[in-house]
Amino acid sequence: NVINACCSFLERQLDPTNAIGIASFAEQHGCSDLQKKANYFIERHFTQVCQEEEFLQLSAYQLIALIRRDELNVQEEREVYNAVLKWVKYDEENRYPKMEHILYAVRCQFLTPNFLKEQMRNCDVLRKVPACREYLAKIFKDLTLHKRPVVKERTPNTTRMIFVAGGFFRQSLDILEAYNVDDKTWTTLPNLRIPRSGLGAAFLKGTFYAVGGRNNSIGSSYDSDWVDRYNTSTEQWRPCAPMTVPRHRVGVAVMDELMYAVGGSAGSEYHSSVEYYDPDQDRWTLVQPMHEKRLGVGVVVVNRLLYAIGGFNGTDRLTTVECYHPENNEWTLVQPMHYERSGAD
């Protein structure tokens, strides 16, 4: 009974500073329910837990067991890599020889080539462990050759949501709704800053983005270069840097932690241009344009290749498909579809 009372008390005290210690206590005393809840807390709040002293005091074995978990709630694998680097640097002379073994538990295949290149060039710890640099160099090569990753992505224990933004019913809408896949319920969230239809949307680093579109409201009709981001924690919209041109019925996709805006139109001007947004810099950068102008283009990313599928060029609906290679900033035409189409997903 005393242990049960202690477990109930400790469960109420869980926070990032003590969750690892509470999980260890629960394991030592056979408190399986508390251990499960503490581990769930660690997984869900990993980005805060890894900043605390308890994390830095883990043994190499404990660290590997933690970062191997599928359920770690991280927005990008870089957070796990940086946590490992911080753990090593806490006692670098004693820990750097263990770096190679620990690095295999990080899902480095989901780091971006640019990040890998920067680490291989500048990281002092990697300089001490040539085997780590060789391992990352091989992953870098596989990524730039667009090979399919041999490890699976993490599956965090978080609420699964579907967001629906804007749209059209008699006029452009400013409504944002979210469907909770687990509870099977819809929730109305704060409205878009401006009504929009024909917009693109994407999740990038845990943030929801609404991109471009048309404000076709009573007394107003214009295409937009606006980009807004929605923070799911604070439930607030904030403006981002605008695109270089307005884009209605734009294709949007995420690749290498960058958000690409593909094609679309501004009035009667149809775009072949493509640009990407870097959330760390709040900046848009134009890349090589497509071979054809495409409104209502379908876009998808497969193995770090961006595909633009079909669309409308102002005259015809298209069967053509193009593929963008980020390494050489080049679009290549691939096998066309059997049927013309625009507005496909």
Rank of each mutant, 00 (worst) to 15 (best):
N1C: 05
N4L: 02
A5L: 04
C6M: 13
C7E: 05
D15F: 05
S24K: 08
Q28R: 14
C31I: 02
Y40A: 12
Y40N: 13
E43K: 13
R44M: 09
T47W: 01
T47K: 04
E52M: 14
E53A: 15
Q57M: 15
Q62V: 00
I64S: 14
R69P: 12
D70W: 05
N73R: 12
R78H: 05
N82A: 13
N82I: 13
N82M: 15
V84R: 06
V84C: 12
L85W: 00
K86Y: 00
N94I: 04
P97L: 14
P97A: 11
P97I: 11
E100W: 04
A105G: 08
R107M: 05
F115W: 04
L116P: 04
K117P: 03
M120S: 02
M120D: 01
R121N: 14
R121K: 15
C123V: 14
D124Y: 02
P130N: 03
C132G: 00
E134K: 11
Y135D: 10
L136N: 03
K138V: 03
I139F: 04
T144P: 08
V150E: 15
E153H: 03
R154I: 10
T158H: 06
I162T: 01
V164I: 15
G166V: 04
Q171K: 13
L173R: 07
D174Y: 07
N180S: 00
N180R: 02
W186E: 00
P190A: 01
I194W: 12
R196N: 09
S197H: 08
L199H: 10
L199D: 08
A201T: 15
A202M: 08
L204A: 03
T207P: 08
T207Q: 09
F208V: 08
Y209C: 08
G212H: 11
G213M: 09
N215L: 05
S221T: 11
Y222D: 14
D223C: 14
S224A: 09
Y230I: 00
N231Y: 07
S233G: 05
Q236C: 13
R238A: 14
R238H: 08
P239Y: 11
M243D: 07
V245P: 02
H248E: 12
H248Y: 12
L258T: 06
M259P: 02
Y260A: 03
V262I: 08
S265E: 07
G267L: 06
S268V: 12
S268Q: 10
H271M: 09
Y276P: 02
Y277N: 07
L286R: 09
Q288C: 14
M290W: 00
E292C: 04
E292L: 07
V301Y: 05
N303P: 05
N303T: 01
G310P: 13
N313K: 07
R317A: 12
E322S: 10
E322D: 14
E322I: 07
H325G: 06
P326K: 00
N329T: 11
W331R: 13
T332D: 06
V334P: 11
Q335T: 15
M337W: 04
Y339P: 01
E340W: 01
E340A: 04
E340Y: 03
R341G: 15
R341D: 13
G343D: 02
